[in-house]
Computed example of a mutant assay.
Amino acid sequence: MGSISYGAGASVIHIEDRALAHLKIVIATKLRRNESFTLSWRHPAGEAVGRSTIWLHPSIPLRFTFDEPEPPALNARWIEDLMHSANSTGGISLVDEMVDGGDG
C-alpha cells in the first residue's frame, strides 16, 4: 500500500501502489501545467467508512511513496479515464481500473 504525503502537516493518504502509480502520472501532468484541482477517493478497508476530497495546488508539498521498488506496467486507458476525471468540474475521482478483454 503506497501513500501520498500532502501539505505542510504531511497528511498521509493510503492508496494501493498500482492505483497510486497511475494517479501520479495524472497529478504530475496537471501540476506541471500549473493547474489546481480536487482529488476524491473512498477510504480503504481498515479506515473509517467514507470518502475524502483534497484540493491539489502546485504550491502545496506533495510526496508519493510506494511499497514496491519497481513501477508497475501502466494501463493507458486507466490514465486516460483519470485524466478525463481530472479535467471535469468534480476533479479526479479515483475510479477502478478497466481492463480491456482481448479476443486472443
Rank of each mutant, 00 (worst) to 15 (best):
H43R: 13
D67Q: 13
I27W: 09
G101S: 03
I15M: 11
V49I: 13
S3A: 11
L82W: 02
I13H: 03
L74I: 13
W55R: 13
M1K: 08
R63P: 01
P69A: 11
P58A: 06
P58T: 03
P44T: 00
L56G: 03
K30G: 03
L20C: 04
E35G: 05
A76P: 12
E47C: 03
W78F: 15
T65W: 02
S11T: 09
I79V: 14
H43S: 12
I27T: 08
T53A: 09
E35R: 14
S3K: 14
G104A: 08
P44W: 00
R77I: 08
H22D: 02
D81T: 04
L56N: 04
G9F: 13
L20E: 01
P69K: 07
A86W: 00
A19F: 01
E47R: 06
T89A: 15
L74Y: 01
I15W: 09
E16P: 00
P69H: 08
I13A: 02
H84Q: 14
S59P: 00
L39A: 08
P72K: 07
S40E: 06
G104W: 03
G2V: 03
E16K: 10
I25A: 11
P44F: 00
A86M: 03
M1W: 02
W78C: 09
I92W: 08
R42F: 05
I15P: 10
N34E: 13
R33A: 15
H22R: 08
V95L: 15
P72D: 07
A48Y: 04
A19I: 04
I15D: 07
A86H: 02
P72T: 06
T29Q: 15
L20R: 06
P71I: 00
K30R: 15
L20N: 02
A21F: 10
S40V: 00
G91W: 02
S11K: 11
P61C: 04
S36T: 08
I27G: 07
A8Y: 10
L62I: 07
A21M: 04
E47M: 08
H57D: 08
E70T: 11
H22E: 01
E80W: 05
T89I: 13
W78I: 05
G101V: 05
S3C: 10
S52Q: 15
H14W: 14
I54Q: 04
S85G: 06
W41A: 03
D100W: 11
E68C: 09
V12R: 15
E70C: 03
E16Q: 12
G46S: 06
A45D: 15
N87C: 11
S36K: 11
R42E: 10
I60W: 02
S88K: 05
D103R: 13
A8H: 07
E35P: 05
L20S: 04
G50W: 08
A21K: 03
G7T: 00
F64L: 07
D103S: 12
D17E: 07
M98D: 12
G101K: 09
G9R: 15
A48M: 04
A86Q: 01
V49Q: 12
H57L: 00
I27E: 07
G102A: 14
G104Y: 04
L23H: 06
K24H: 12
